[in-house]
Design a protein around this nucleic acid. Structure first.
Lengths: 203, 203
DNA sequence: TGCTAAACGGAGACTGTCTCCGCATTCCTG
DNA sequence: CAGGAATGCGGAGACAGTCTCCGTTTAGCA
C-alpha cells in the first residue's frame, strides 16, 4: 500500500521537496493545465511560468523539457486509461463492441489537449522521451485488450496490437489537427475494426 | 497548348516577373528543397534565405507563408500523384491490389519531407491554407479510385472516400513522426484495406 | 537564532519569424 | 542610348519563444 500522502513532485525514494519548491511545483502544474487547455500542447512555457508567478528558471528546474511537464499532467490520466482497458477485457462483450468502446476511449484521451496526440505518437518510439513510459503503458493496455480478443478467436490472425495502436494514434492525430466530427472519427475507427474482426460486418 | 516557356513563378495571366525577381525566386526554391530535405518541413526560413543568398524580405515577398513555399515544391509532385490514380483506375486490377498500390503511393508521397504529412493533413480542412487546393487534388484523386472500386461492387457499402483519405493520412503522419518500417506501414494499410474490401481476406 | 543547502528568479544569450523602408535594378519610352 | 518610373532588394530590427547562469533569498535544522 502506497502512503496516501504520496503526491505529485514528491520524490520516489529521494529526500522530500522543500515546502516552497512543492508550492511552486503545484502552481506550475496548475498554470500548465490552464495554458495547455487554452493554447494546446505547444503553448509558451514562459507564459506558464508567468501565470504561475515564478521565474522561467524555476519552471525549467522542475521540468527540464516540455515533455516532462506533459508527463506530469498525464499522471492520473494514464492510469484511468489503463483501468478502462481492464474493464473492457472484464466485461466480456463481443469483439466489435469491445473495440468500439476501447478505441473511442483511446482517441478521446489522446486528443485531450490539442497537439498532445502528435507528441504521444512521436514518443512511442523514442526511448529517450520523458513520456516514453506513458506511451508504453498505453500500448500495454491496448495490447491487453487486443490479445484478449485474439484469444477468444474473434480477430483475424496476424493482427499485431502495435499496428492497431498506431492506427488509432493516427486517427487521433488527424482528428486533432483538422476539425473532424465525432461521427467521422467513429466511421474511421469502424473501418479499422472491420479490418481486424472476423465476424461478418453488416452489408 | 500552354507555352513551354511557362515557368515557376511566372504569373498566371499577370505581367511577367522581372528578370532579377525570377532569378531569386528560383534560388529560393532550390535552397528550400535543400533545407526541407535536410531538416524537414519545419526548417528555418531565414536559413533558406541565407542559402539562397537573398534577404529575408525577398523570401517573404515571394512566399508570404511557409505553406506557399511548400506549395511550390509540390508543384509537379501533385500531378504525378493524380496520374498514379488514373493508372490505378485504368489498370482494372482487383480492389485489394489496387488499394495496396494506391495507398502505398499516397503514403510515400505524403512523407516526402519530414513534417509534410502533418501539414498536408491539417490543411485538408483549412480553406484558407495555401496548400488547400493541393490537398483537394489529392483527395479528388483518392475519391476517383475509391468510387471506381465501389462501382465494381468490391467495397463494402457506406465506405466514404474521405474517411479512407484521412486514415491513410494518419498512417503517413505517424510513420513520419516515429521511425516506422515499410513492413509496418504495409501492415497498417493492410488492416485498413481489409476494413473496406468485400472479398474474403486470407485467414 | 544562525548556518547551510536548496531553491528562486530574472537578465540576457540565442534562434526563429516577419516587417518596414531607403536603396538598387530593371526595363520601358522617347 | 539615356532617363525615369516602377519594381524588387535586403538588412536592420521588433517581437516572441527557449533556455541558462548565477547572485540573492529562503526553508529547515541544530
Amino acid at each position: 500500500m502506497v502512503p496516501v500522502t504520496e503526491q505529485a513532485g514528491t520524490s520516489d525514494g529521494a529526500r522530500p521537496m522543500r515546502a516552497d519548491a512543492r508550492r511552486n511545483y503545484e502552481k506550475i502544474v496548475a498554470a500548465a493545465r490552464e495554458v495547455f487547455a487554452e493554447r494546446g500542447a505547444e503553448g509558451s512555457l514562459d507564459e506558464i511560468a508567468r501565470r504561475a508567478g515564478v521565474g522561467p528558471g524555476t519552471l525549467y528546474r522542475h521540468f527540464p523539457t516540455r515533455e516532462d511537464l506533459i508527463d506530469e499532467l498525464m499522471r492520473d490520466w494514464t492510469s484511468r486509461v489503463v483501468a478502462d482497458s481492464d474493464n473492457a477485457v472484464a466485461a466480456g462483450r463481443p469483439a466489435r463492441e469491445t473495440l468500439v468502446r476501447w478505441f473511442d476511449d483511446l482517441v478521446r484521451h489522446l486528443t485531450l489537449h490539442r497537439g498532445a496526440a502528435a507528441k504521444l505518437s512521436a514518443a512511442m518510439d523514442d526511448r529517450s522521451s520523458p513520456i516514453f513510459r506513458k506511451c508504453q503503458q498505453l500500448a500495454d493496455a491496448n495490447e491487453r485488450v487486443v490479445r484478449h480478443l485474439a484469444e477468444t478467436g474473434e480477430l483475424r490472425r496476424g493482427v499485431e496490437p502495435r499496428h492497431l495502436m498506431r492506427l488509432v494514434a493516427g486517427v487521433a492525430v488527424v482528428a486533432d489537427a483538422a476539425a473532424v466530427t465525432d461521427e467521422e472519427i467513429a466511421a474511421m475507427l469502424g473501418i479499422v475494426i472491420d479490418g481486424v474482426v472476423l465476424d461478418p460486418a453488416p452489408s
